[in-house]
Design a protein around this nucleic acid. Structure first.
Lengths: 225, 225
DNA sequence: TAAAAAACAGGTAAAAACCCCTGCTTTTAC
DNA sequence: GTAAAAGCAGGGGTTTTTACCTGTTTTTTA
């Protein structure tokens, strides 16, 4: 198992970059490049035809469009991880966009590398993705932290607002697109009372209108699914 | 630099576990345990008094309360990472709760380990956190992926709805708590026109009212920050 | 170039927002 | 243990905003 080579696939449109990467990886003792593609469209087909699937797929984030429709590394990542859950997708990109990184992780990417990293880092990443299941470096972690829900200290905020149970209850019903009267019926109280609670909510949350209430509820994870 | 020892701090209430961990780490050549605490309350004070800050802080997630108030590893992580950004906080926990892991990462934790891992993994984690800035293993990555919003192909949904640019623009302004008239002023069009767009949005998204529009925008990540 | 889609706009009724207010019950604090 | 505070329920009325309908003009696109 430890001596078995890590099967690596490359998805990268620039021929030179792809060849260079292949050359670098060829020098590594326990890595074998056994798959490559210049665009995203044919990858799934090629993989289904493979006798052995690659362990790790290095995917360029900016893949070329096919005529009109675009099929970039993000979409490919999503499709690959859904159809081949065992393949670890490692994104290569020139950019370093936080929200993009977070989204890629969300779409199932196992790691993210900028293209100007050194070869050793590529090797570490492949190794880490294969053995640990992921390769998250500091910048990726920061990206994740910045995009892992925007709620900073929800408990503190909630506590300071001091919403009552009834208010939370009504807020949740508002967020389910109920009108004031519908809420009143469901809670067996007067519509006027609901209106009063709604106004308290507006005041307590500092909202201008229902939109603000919904955004608040979302930020505080108060939504019932 | 490479020969310099990694300074490690322990925050763990169980004496036996803390001592055991210290003994394990003492065997490692490039690790030095130079700080320890049995609860969360005194950590910040102790750290400010330190001549040299630890590189890595191993923190037990379930720290004991002080009388009435609770101060657990989550809160400690939040405080430490805010006040000492250079210290990498590594969480130790018996549980393996996805949403908890994600929240900890969000609060600034650099890694998460379950307590029944083997000593080698602790060493790897410390090493990784110190050199790479983070240690995210497969279960942590899964936790992150599960908590980075829901994974249901926003683009596909968006495409099928076919919102126009103008509609998206107006939806975003609605989500900023603007009234129809304010939006009209900002876009130099009639309020009636904005209203028309709003109605198209209601129809296209299948919403009953503005609340539905906001929830849709949130689900599609259409909010401008 | 014809059809489709988008942008625009007016009228009307319903709902929400925003004020004012009175009681009653429960919780909290001194 | 009593007083104060907070939560809850209810009411009246006005103004603003939204929801829903209709239609026309402009822009896209097949």
């Amino acid at each position: 198992m430890a001596d078995q080579k890590i099967r690596v696939g490359l998805v990268e449109d620039q021929l030179l970059f792809r060849q260079g990467l292949k050359a670098i990886l060829a020098n590594l003792p326990n890595v074998e490049v056994m798959f490559e593609s210049a665009d995203g469209y044919s990858v799934v087909d090629k993989l289904t035809a493979c006798p052995e699937l690659p362990h790790v797929l290095l995917v360029d984030l900016s893949l070329p469009p096919n005529g009109k429709t675009e099929y970039n590394g993000m979409q490919l990542t999503n499709d690959i991880t859904l159809r081949f859950p065992d393949i670890k997708v490692m994104i290569l990109s020139v950019h370093n966009d936080d929200s993009l990184i977070a989204q890629l992780i969300q779409y199932g990417a196992a790691g993210y590398l900028v293209k100007d990293c050194n070869p050793q880092e590529v090797y570490d990443a492949i190794q880490s993705v294969h053995t640990k299941g992921s390769y998250i470096n500091e910048q990726s972690l920061k990206a994740i932290q910045n995009n892992l829900g925007k709620r900073h200290k929800p408990k503190a905020l909630m506590a300071s607002l001091n919403l009552t149970k009834r208010e939370v209850e009504i807020l949740q019903l508002i967020c389910q697109q109920n009108t004031t009267e519908e809420i009143a019926e469901k809670l067996f109280i007067s519509a006027k009372t609901v209106d009063g609670h709604r106004n308290n909510l507006l005041q307590k949350t500092g909202s201008r209108n229902t939109v603000g209430l919904v955004l608040f509820a979302v930020s505080q994870n108060l939504l019932l699914k």
